[in-house]
């Protein structure tokens, strides 16, 4: 099972689902920012010290910590 956390810079993936274990408030927040099922995400880069990750979704750039990205399953 691949998650957004494992996605390498330059890769484009599609969101499959959220893991049930993730924080519910965070999920709501992410849904509002465009992280919905079927959304295409392109990972752009990783910050200097390895975290967070910058990605583009719905045409804009956003960054997420790996901790937050690990509960989003992608393909």
């Amino acid at each position: 099972m691949k998650t957004l956390k494992d996605t390498k810079p330059g890769e484009t993936v599609t969101i499959v689902k959220y893991h049930k274990t993730g924080d519910i408030d965070l999920r709501r927040h992410l849904l509002g920012m465009g992280f919905v099922k079927g959304a295409e995400i392109t990972v752009k880069k990783v910050a200097t010290f390895g975290d967070p990750i910058e990605m583009s979704v719905k045409g804009y750039s956003v960054c997420l910590r790996k901790d937050e990205a690990k509960n989003i399953e992608v393909k």
């Binding site: 924080d23 408030d25 965070l26 927040h29 992410l30 920012m33 967070p52 910058e54 804009y60 750039s61 956003v62 960054c63 997420l64 910590r65 937050e68």
Partner: peptide
């Protein structure tokens, strides 16, 4: 709070 931050 979650980090999730837009890079404008």
């Amino acid at each position: 709070a979650p980090f999730v931050m837009e890079l404008p």
